[in-house]
Amino acid sequence: MSINRPAVTALAAAFCLLTAACGASSDDRASAGTAEAAASKTGYPVTLDNCGEKETFTKAPSRVVVMNGASVAEVSTLLALGLGDRIVANQQGYGRSEVPGRAAAVKKLPTGNIKLNDAYDIPREAMLGLRPDLVLSVTTYGFDQRNGFATRDQLRQVGANSYVSPQGCDDDPSKMTVADSYQLLRDMGKIFNVSDRAEKLIAASEKNIAAVSKNVEGEKQPKVMVLFSNMSMGSSDFGSVLANGIVNDILAKAGGANAFSDTTKATFADLSKEKVAATDVDAVVVISYNDPDPAAYAKKLLKEFPQWPAAENNTYVTLSDSMYLGPSNDLAVQKVARMLHPDAF
């Protein structure tokens, strides 16, 4: 049987390697072999398809800028992975955290000492002046030139990669789930070559959530109101009520349901006081965003609507970063489940 062309080509290549007869010097071949071995050892290059754009990393980023975006997902994920020393400027922070020491760790991070724009975020020229090699944003909003931000192309021109967190490509996190928190961890794990750390965090979170969900399986699902404390985000009295997004997945895993999920398809519901008063609310989750006393807000809310079962039973819990995209959703599931189903634990 004759040898086919691919086999001939392979044999010729092997002959060239053995005899140094194919035009490349021994130094060239040694260099190429060393580079290939190094790439295999370090895990680079890494290419991610992020919001339709290819982002290639040839090494672990060392000058990371974390944009605000009313998020703590990105900075919390980096800290959970032990990557805080890579951050040269961070604009994220809830002021509180369910993870001991995290709020203090976030506060200690450098901010870049820059003047923020009207959106409390980093304008284009200041961003470029930070000389980042990676910029993180929770949505594409942070890379929109109409908002005065550096675009992804502009960042690429100065040698910086960029990354938009899961479900942030269309600036609408209404479909976000806990799985997106895991995806963020995995992506950061790949980018920084710490996938082993990311997978350990994911496995622990999945185990914790599974145990909670098993305890509350078959229980009646109380109706829960989830909102940010002392924050106005809409035109009505209750514009900071969350109707969709990752909070609904957390509630479901904790044995509850969102009392206002049917009011809109958007992330936030813009509710009138009359609508809120007419809804049976069994429990309240208050999310603190730089609010030093969210419990006071929760008590005021329950006093305002004494007809709620939540008010009659004083059923509320205050949380912060664990209710958002990030590495600590299992803590929110545990705390919400214990509030809703105390006899199950």
Rank of each mutant, 00 (worst) to 15 (best):
D321I: 03
N193V: 01
N329S: 09
D144L: 10
A311Y: 07
F15C: 13
S40D: 05
L134F: 04
R156T: 15
G43F: 02
L242C: 08
T47S: 12
G218H: 13
I246G: 13
D187Q: 10
S288K: 13
V317R: 01
R96K: 06
L201I: 12
V88Y: 01
G326A: 04
A73D: 05
V276N: 02
S162P: 03
I202E: 11
D249S: 14
K54A: 04
D85P: 08
S232W: 05
I250L: 15
D330W: 05
A24Y: 08
I114C: 11
V64D: 02
R156G: 13
K59F: 02
D291H: 14
S322K: 08
L340Y: 03
V286N: 09
L251I: 15
G95H: 03
F268D: 04
E219A: 14
E125V: 15
K200S: 14
G142I: 07
G43H: 01
A103E: 12
A30I: 09
G245F: 10
S25M: 09
A119N: 14
G101S: 06
D28K: 07
V281E: 04
S137E: 07
I246W: 07
E55N: 06
G95E: 03
T19Q: 10
E274M: 04
K115G: 14
S240A: 15
D270M: 01
D133P: 02
D237E: 14
I246H: 11
